[in-house]
Nucleic acid binder design. Structure first.
Lengths: 334, 334
DNA sequence: TTGAAAGCGCTAACAA
DNA sequence: TTGTTAGCGCTTTCAA
């Protein structure tokens, strides 16, 4: 049943259509692509034949001729992380509007794998790549040689000489910290995610800035991976140290899951004992208990911007910054 | 910078390599594909030239010639649901082992969109498709005509005349119910997910069977979508009706998130007031609070089986059943 | 308005 | 062992 090898066999080609419609193959192309005027009668015959045969242009032949596969690639650290899953979905939708499909692959947060996935994608001759890199300065050798455009997505800072789009982390952090301050909390700690070797994250910098502006002393910092496990361990450390602050800015909803769990396990209450403002605005925030107050990233907007950048004609590198906004839940005490 | 249009321009072709190596284009293919013996010296010259030029076979040309794109397609109801995200990831990994990449797309749980995505994929001439269908009997017109093999993945029951792989839901439900019974609970309800028009889900049937076998009366049933929201609302209804059972079998980890939230919000405790066994074994189970006891699906195994089925030569349809196993957390009272 | 034909880059059968 | 060449299906120029 449905043998792999028969794929090619049963597909109608352009000549089949031409034959059935009694025209030349060229005319079939003209009609299908609408690139050239064609006699009304001929057009109808072709359309009939196309319908009858279920004809579709062979995308490989088309790509070979045109030099475009109408496919885009995307690399994220972990496709299973809800944040990236959602981002990838928005990219899928935005690309589909322009007739592109996207191949999604994950780097498992490894520089080596990231590099391999990029190679794979380049080998597939995708027309462009969205890269959510694990590192600040990814290894883009050969991609430039291959002439495949890349847009850095979700990057922490604009990479020079390359298009990028990312949220204004600094401002996002300000929103979070200011909201906690408005609640009257004067001790505001941070649970910060991170990956090796990076410069200071905008969320941390923004947290610091805000505190300074508010003349508050920085609360404790706990670090961990950008995962539930990372948040869990970071929070456990904070609890064991006995220095749990009255309020916390947590740098991702994923981490917050772990933070929440560690907190509840320790018998502490959110927001009564620890108030939390999270970051991302993912679906996780809405179904946590308590629901998370979180700084939401406009993923759809980011995806649109990234697709725009990738598909627009040659231009000087642009770093597109989008703004986050606060979504209020219960974890802050509101 | 990185203009789309330059993609084709700068790529070295086989003839470039041949010229540089001083051999004929055929020899380059022989070396690159290892399909034919070649003189040691020629081989080395070719390899050098390949490296120097960063040459890679043009996949479109290759696909055109061979009738295979070495790409697979996958359609899931929602790529953002952690269960499907994980499954898709496992498929990605399993396919990569065979040199295939997979294009993932989501049907948004709509039959119409599912159909469109299948068309899209077929139009891309993927070598095969994994389908996690929204409905029991999906519309596969033209795909058979196009000769593209399809494997039903995660399907509730084997679809006749088509390869499929799915977990043994009946047995999985038995594991859940029996575990609750071993805890001594004699009232065991169910929170069941579902999509329109389906036959009874194996989890529900299994729950019923187990209860019968244990001579217990069926506890209350609450239904909802297979989402956190669905679980939340279903549990709220149960709570409002005043008939919250001592223990619950919840049909997915996603639903359990909502169930947990509704339960905690109502001031009930898990497992003290309501014990829960969930289904899926996703990462969500481990980072819930309390952690979920859950019936884990062997996603990697399912993915391997599906890839095997899709890439194996013509054969009679096979329904591959894999077994779930219990992962113990705290939600059951253990 | 239509058709003939070149050529995209590759694989593989066949010839040398 | 190596080279020549047909042809995969398509788009598009050029000529009719």
């Amino acid at each position: 049943m449905s043998p792999l090898s028969s794929s090619a066999a049963s597909r109608a080609t352009r000549s089949d259509v031409a034959k059935l419609a009694g025209v030349s193959p060229a005319v079939v192309s003209y009609v299908v692509n609408g690139t050239k005027r064609v006699g009304a009668e001929a057009e109808e015959r072709v359309r009939d034949a196309v319908a009858k045969l279920g004809y579709r242009a062979n995308p490989s032949a088309r790509a070979l001729r045109l030099g475009s596969t109408e496919m885009l690639g995307m690399v994220t650290p972990t496709t299973t992380n809800p944040y990236f899953a959602q981002l990838a979905h928005e990219v899928e939708v935005a690309a589909a509007k322009r007739g592109f499909m996207v191949i999604n692959s994950s780097s498992d947060s490894s520089v080596v794998t990231e590099r391999n996935q990029l190679e794979q994608l380049a080998g597939r001759l995708v027309d462009g790549i969205f890269l959510c890199s694990t590192v600040f300065e990814p290894d883009l050798r050969n991609l430039d040689i291959a002439g495949i455009p890349i847009v850095m997505l979700n990057n922490r800072a604009g990479i020079p000489s390359r298009d990028s789009v990312g949220v204004d982390l600094l401002h996002g952090a300000h929103l979070a910290v200011e909201h906690l301050a408005e609640h009257g909390y004067d001790e505001i700690g941070i649970v910060m995610g991170g990956t090796a070797g990076d410069a200071e994250d905008g969320r941390e910098a923004g947290w610091r800035e805000s505190l300074e502006r508010l003349s508050l002393a920085p609360g404790p910092i706990a670090r961990g991976l950008f995962t539930p496990g990372g948040g869990y361990q970071a929070m456990q450390r904070l609890i064991r140290s006995g220095a749990v602050p009255r309020s916390l800015f947590v740098s991702s909803d994923q981490m917050s899951r772990g933070v929440l769990k560690a907190t509840l396990e320790a018998g502490l209450k959110v927001p009564e004992d620890v108030a939390i403002v999270s970051f991302d605005g993912s679906i996780d925030a809405a179904y946590s208990w308590p629901t998370l107050t979180t700084v939401a990233q406009p993923l759809a907007e980011m995806a649109e911007a990234a697709v725009d950048a990738l598909l627009s004609p040659p231009h000087d590198p642009v770093h597109r910054v989008v703004e986050a906004h606060l979504v209020v839940g219960r974890s802050c005490g509101c």
